[in-house]
């Protein structure tokens, strides 16, 4: 392997690893606060850019979708309406949620009428975003105090449902999206897509933002408190279910924006979320789903493994990455025995 190839692989590894890191951070956040392993996070990641395709002018997307409201908007609106129904005892909250449900449809309708690219970009994120916290309210909150396994089963079910809906909403094909920042920049031997720099920038800002949120803001500290000691948090007046909404919302926001930034580089389709999410999960497992720095490190490792494998044995690229899970899980199970039962 010469230097040029190595540089190419390294650039590739960094780009993918950064996305896995963002997903891993989100998964760790959600798991720490709610004990839910958010398998459908990858679906949220592809939903946002696929929704954006519906808001693109025909000359950009090459499709004639003018005036069609994307299926994700109906889904988000339906889930918000379901949420409003569950909150029917509090008229104010139910009213706000019903309003939100109509609002999502309104935004999607607006986007479908033809809007500037940048506006469509934000509308796509806004339309998909409610699906995250609404999933928490509709599917996880009712199973309060369930075991990690029960939550995992629900999460896997949701993943299949959202992936299937993705196929219904967007069809099987991959879509080409315009880059927010087009062109390439030569770094050493490697030409890097400018769009990739946006991914790095967003990853850096997210990590910094989360760090400041968790270390400075009382709300961030409350989220940590819920993760550290749920019972203690409740006694201090911190509601674990509110913490659940916040963590699901942050995770969904990170996934949506990651997806929007990554999309021009990968030409998204409905089925791509799962593999991305799973690799984020492998990275998160490296940190035991509790440590943010280890998860980020794991993500870069997964990215590196993947591009190395793609070069050496491209047909087995994904298999090799998932084979990484076995030694990691083995090592972690040894370690958790050393530490004894924590809780």
């Amino acid at each position: 392997m010469d230097w040029a190839i190595f540089s190419f692989l390294a650039a590739d590894a960094l780009q993918n690893g950064t996305i896995y890191a963002l997903l891993a951070l989100s998964l760790v956040l959600v798991f720490a606060v709610t004990r839910v392993i958010l398998v459908p996070l990858g679906e949220f990641l592809v939903y946002a850019p696929l929704t954006y395709v519906w808001f693109l002018p025909p000359e950009v997307s090459g499709l004639n979708l003018r005036g069609q409201i994307p299926g994700t908007a109906w889904l988000a609106a339906a889930m918000l309406a379901g949420w409003a129904f569950l909150e029917r005892k509090s008229l104010r909250r139910a009213g706000l949620l019903a309003l939100g449900s109509l609002g999502v449809l309104g935004l999607a309708w607006w986007g479908a009428q033809g809007v500037p690219l940048w506006l469509g970009w934000f509308l796509a994120v806004l339309v998909v975003l409610p699906i995250g916290p609404a999933s928490y309210r509709l599917f996880f909150e009712p199973a309060k105090n369930a075991s990690v396994l029960t939550y995992l089963i629900i999460a896997v079910g949701l993943h299949f449902a959202f992936m299937g809906l993705g196929l219904v909403f967007f069809g099987p094909e991959q879509f080409r999206l315009p880059a927010v920042w087009s062109g390439q920049t030569q770094v050493g031997l490697v030409p890097i897509n400018n769009q990739a720099f946006l991914v790095y920038g967003f990853a850096f800002l997210s990590a910094l933002g989360l760090y400041l949120f968790f270390s400075r803001s009382i709300y961030g500290k409350a989220l940590r408190a819920c993760a550290v000691n749920r019972y203690g948090a409740r006694l201090s007046g911190i509601s674990p279910s509110q913490a659940g909404y916040v963590s699901f919302s942050i995770a969904t926001l990170i996934a949506c924006v990651s997806g929007m930034l990554l999309a021009p580089l990968i030409s998204p389709a409905y089925f791509q979320g799962f593999l991305l999410g799973l690799k984020g999960f492998v990275a998160g497992i490296l940190g035991g789903l509790v440590s943010y720095p280890l998860a980020a490190l794991g993500a870069l490792l997964v990215g590196a493994m993947e591009s190395w494998a793609a070069f050496q044995a491209s047909a087995y690229k994904d298999a090799i990455v998932f084979a990484l899970l076995l030694p990691i899980l083995f090592w972690r199970s040894l370690r958790s025995q050393e530490l004894g039962e924590e809780e």
Partner: peptide
């Protein structure tokens, strides 16, 4: 006691 064991003493107090 149910403290937030891995957080600073002052954070525990503020969270109260």
């Amino acid at each position: 006691r149910e403290l937030f064991a891995s957080m600073a003493v002052e954070d525990n107090l503020l969270l109260g």
